[in-house]
């Protein structure tokens, strides 16, 4: 379904601060796979998602989706099959526009936008229903500008928007990291439900080891632009957080330095 073949991404090539952010990444996901990605800061986790979304083009390698080579497709062309949620709740929504307008923008994902009104009774009804499914009371606030929402509410709305318009791949980049623990848990629950409901293929970056093992069916660990550990099936089910941290030191020859990762161990 999604294939990354020998991906190399180099920033600042030919300069003193050259940075080999991805150094030969191979990854193959089947339909319905839910991959969690862990690794220390700067390992290249976000860069992988950016390669899938089209924000960056790899110097070497191919990105294949459903048999189509999309390596050189710009972001807006990939929108029809990729939905995305960033860490920062502010990045996923248009603040000055209303909730229903934001949903309408997402509803037309990857489609031609014409001179029809973006909102009508039918769409509003559908949005209201989808919002009430979130269980946050947003269905009564269709006409509120998004800037009035809390971080958690905005992130829930972004999740909904990222899955509207029938994308088949969902990219989540530490999308609960900016939220307080209780809200983060709420968003994680919504994530599980929304992925289940829409039968999506997911790539989720997280710094929470527990989450990484509990959610989804596959896990990769990254270091210095490489995948240093792949887990699935039985091996993954038996894996504990302690063992995972140990594996990291073994494979990378260093301690796991991201303090957020350590904090999230409990």
């Amino acid at each position: 379904m999604l294939k990354l073949e020998n991906i190399h991404k180099v920033f600042n090539y030919g300069k003193v601060n050259v940075n080999h952010a991805l150094n030969g990444v191979d990854l193959s996901l089947s339909e319905g796979d839910f991959l969690t990605i862990i690794g220390s800061n700067g390992a290249g986790k976000s860069t992988i998602l950016n390669i899938v979304a089209g924000t960056y083009t790899p110097e070497i390698g191919r990105v294949v989706v459903d048999g189509k080579d999309v390596t050189r497709w710009p972001t807006h062309k990939r929108a029809s099959f990729v939905g995305r949620v960033f860490q920062d709740p502010l990045r996923g929504t248009a603040a000055e526009m209303t909730i229903e307008e934001n949903l309408s923008l997402a509803y037309m994902r990857g489609k031609r936008r014409g001179l029809k009104l973006g909102l009508n009774k039918k769409r509003r009804d559908e949005f209201r229903e989808r919002l009430s499914w979130l269980g946050l009371g947003l269905e009564d606030r269709l006409e509120d500008p998004v800037k009035l929402l809390s971080g958690g509410q905005r992130q829930a709305l972004t999740l909904l928007m990222a899955t509207l318009g029938e994308p088949i791949i969902l990219l989540l980049d530490e999308h609960t990291a900016a939220l307080d623990p209780k809200t983060a848990e709420q968003i994680i629950n919504i994530t599980r439900r929304i992925v289940e409901k829409n039968k999506l293929t997911v790539l989720m970056v997280t710094h929470n080891m527990k989450q990484a093992l509990e959610m989804g069916n596959r896990t990769i660990m990254m270091d210095k632009g490489k995948i240093i550990l792949e887990l699935q099936g039985e091996e993954r089910e038996k894996m504990t957080i302690g063992e995972l941290v140990k594996k990291f030191s073994e494979k990378s020859g260093q301690e796991l330095t991201d303090d957020r990762v350590l904090l999230a161990k409990e």
Partner: peptide
């Protein structure tokens, strides 16, 4: 309109509207 809304969204949050 659908098109006009995407103009407003481009000024508001270009990163987001590109992903859409």
């Amino acid at each position: 309109t659908e098109f006009g809304m995407s103009i407003r969204a481009t000024g508001d949050n270009p990163v987001m509207i590109e992903t859409l």
